[in-house]
């Protein structure tokens, strides 16, 4: 397998630069398309190798195509990330200082919460303690809309969560900034926000909802994999590959 970049790799990268994040199914389809368009060899199980070739060339530019799981549906995604510094680098060109401060405050709220969410009310209230130029209510609302559009946050019924893109890109930052607060998923060992927590106070491990679904699938009496206590939460169903991506 040649380690040289072809136009297929370049087109794949160009597309990633336009969309930032794609799920595994789309990544495979795009991989196949790029190979066919530029008459390159393509093997279905070689996507990660293909991306590794791109990453080798991207590394000196402090960029990387990184794989990660969506906390929402458990699917694998690929995101184009900046590796330059552990801070919120990619965003600094798109957002003003005070907007970044509010984003950090939102992250604080999400990381500090049990369920990995922050309500719009709490975010609006957190503007009171801003040290940079304070954002007005309407400005905060507009900013939140932009952060959702730019795929940094997700919103459902007034509750904000960190998007898959945000978690993939900022995992190193989150791990170092919130060392004492952030917990890893006991199953997949990545940072966990939207998850279930063992209710045994001396245990308290976290498991992502999709990891819960997979781990406890078919088990009659779910027990915590760490302390063997009864797992009292509702076990979600394993979510199959979305049919909508097959349109």
């Amino acid at each position: 397998m040649s380690r040289q970049l072809g136009d297929g790799h370049r087109r794949f990268l160009q597309t990633m630069m336009g969309v930032y994040i794609i799920d595994e199914l789309k990544a495979k389809a795009l991989y196949q398309y790029c190979c066919e368009t530029f008459k390159m060899q393509c093997a279905a199980d070689r996507l990660d190798e293909f991306i590794e070739t791109i990453n080798l060339k991207l590394q000196p530019m402090f960029m990387q195509v990184r794989k990660g799981m969506s906390e929402e549906n458990g699917h694998q995604y690929y995101a184009l990330v900046n590796t330059a510094e552990t801070d919120i680098t990619r965003m600094t060109s798109d957002y003003a200082d005070n907007e970044l401060e509010l984003f950090r405050k939102t992250m604080d709220l999400i990381v500090g919460s049990e369920k990995g969410t922050a309500s719009s009310t709490d975010i609006l209230n957190s503007t009171d303690t801003m040290t940079s130029k304070k954002l007005k209510k309407s400005e905060t609302e507009h900013l939140l809309t932009r952060l959702v559009q730019d795929k940094w946050l997700c919103e459902k019924r007034g509750e904000y969560t960190l998007s898959t893109r945000c978690i993939i890109e900022m995992e190193p930052y989150i791990r170092s900034m919130y060392q004492d607060q952030v917990k890893m998923c006991h199953i997949c060992h990545n940072v966990a926000f939207q998850c279930q927590i063992c209710e045994n106070p001396s245990c308290g491990i976290k498991i992502h909802n999709p990891c819960v679904a997979r781990y406890f699938k078919g088990k009659m009496e779910p027990q915590c994999p760490a302390c063997d206590d009864f797992w009292p939460h509702e076990i979600p169903e394993v979510r199959g590959l979305r049919s909508q991506s097959k349109k």
Partner: peptide, 17 residues
Amino acid sequence: VNNLETATSRAAPVECP
């Protein structure tokens, strides 16, 4: 400027917005 041929026979599965 994009150096790659943009006209292709079939539509890309992932369109950039």
